[in-house]
């Protein structure tokens, strides 16, 4: 493979980006390369990394799920509220988790139905549910944050919640373990199961897939359900880390997930993209935050930097010839 083709391809670009980052940090702040920094970054990206793995299913179909942040908040609130109301009993916790899972499945089904039967654009549907869920969360909690009690050592339910976010197995924090598990399972699903193959087919050429007998509607709904489910899982883990749940939990995380998708080279038109791309994208998003803190970039800059990076990433994607974001005018209709 020629050098140019290698660097035009996905892995080539990722290596270039990483090399750039490493070069900058080697000069500016060598402590970037310590083991503790690496594990810190891994911990930071676990939450939206899980969301990215879920959203990948939807993006493969050419859609988007912007509601992941609010879905996480609502799931956490459901678990917290039901657990609290039951007096922190084990049965209450179980009920809460089941309820949160059920809610996320319902939301995912709603997305899928709106997109398949009503033919609504996915970003409008999920943008709307993002705000709906944002409003529903305080309705569940009765208006403000719910705090898990810090000192109920004998209570197994509270201990379980605490360990979900804070325990370490072999010195690896639980959220990272969850993240790794999700990556493995999702990656396996996409690469080696027929469902995964069908998703790629659907995303690449929906008409042909339908003709061939792929159960389009069912698979689409399943993809949106996966995305919502993983968002719910992320929300529960995040609320365990802080031992609190509320409306603003994971607020704005969909921006990081979207950035992860774009930087990871996932084609937003569908049909292309792997778990490794999503993981790399999440890693990149975490590295950028890490860099900005280590380099003492003033907080005022950070929002502008985030926007600029997404923009640059989209431009690079377009120019590298991959179809992500590339729009041909006026031969093919421009999309949103």
């Amino acid at each position: 493979m020629s050098v140019r083709r290698f660097f035009g391809g996905a892995w080539g670009q990722r290596i270039v980006i990483l090399a750039l980052i490493f070069a900058v940090m080697a000069v500016a702040e060598p402590k970037f390369f310590t083991g503790s920094n690496a594990s810190s970054v891994l911990f930071a990206i676990s939450i939206y990394g899980m969301m990215a793995c879920g959203m990948l299913f939807v993006v493969l179909l050419g859609g988007l799920d912007l509601s992941v942040g609010s879905m996480a908040a609502v799931s956490a609130c459901i678990v917290a509220q039901i657990t609290m109301k039951s007096g922190y009993s084990g049965a209450g916790l179980l009920t809460g988790i089941v309820a949160a899972i059920a809610a996320s499945i319902a939301v995912g089904v709603l997305h899928g139905l709106c997109v398949t039967y009503m033919r609504m654009p996915s970003f409008i549907v999920t943008l709307s549910t993002k705000y709906i869920l944002y409003g529903v969360a305080p309705i569940i909690t009765g208006g403000s944050f719910i705090y898990y009690p810090q000192e109920m050592d004998s209570n197994s339910a509270v201990n379980f919640i605490y360990s979900l976010g804070n325990k370490r197995i072999a010195n690896v924090p639980m959220p990272v373990i969850f993240f790794a598990a999700v990556v493995v399972i999702a990656g396996f699903t996409l690469a080696s199961t027929t469902y995964g193959r069908r998703l790629y087919a659907l995303g690449g050429n929906p008409t042909a897939s339908a003709l061939v007998g792929v159960r389009v509607r069912r698979d689409t709904v399943a993809a949106y359900v996966v995305s919502s489910l993983l968002a719910a899982l992320s929300g529960i883990v995040l609320s365990s880390v802080n031992m609190q749940a509320g409306q603003t939990l994971a607020q704005g995380y969909e921006g990081s997930v979207l950035m992860a998708m774009i930087v990871g080279g996932i084609n937003l038109a569908g049909g292309e993209g792997t778990i490794s791309g999503a993981v790399f994208g999440a890693l990149f998003a975490g590295l950028i935050n890490n860099m900005m803190t280590l380099l003492s970039v003033p907080s005022d800059f950070q929002k502008a930097v985030q926007g600029a990076i997404i923009l640059v990433a989209v431009c690079i994607n377009a120019y590298s010839g991959r179809r992500a974001g590339r729009v041909k005018l006026p031969a093919a209709p421009a999309e949103k």
Partner: peptide
């Protein structure tokens, strides 16, 4: 966002630095 996890992340990076 005055958030606990953002403070956690920032503090972790400072501990590295």
């Amino acid at each position: 966002n005055w958030s606990q996890e953002n403070a956690n992340t920032a503090m972790r990076d400072f501990l590295t630095k």
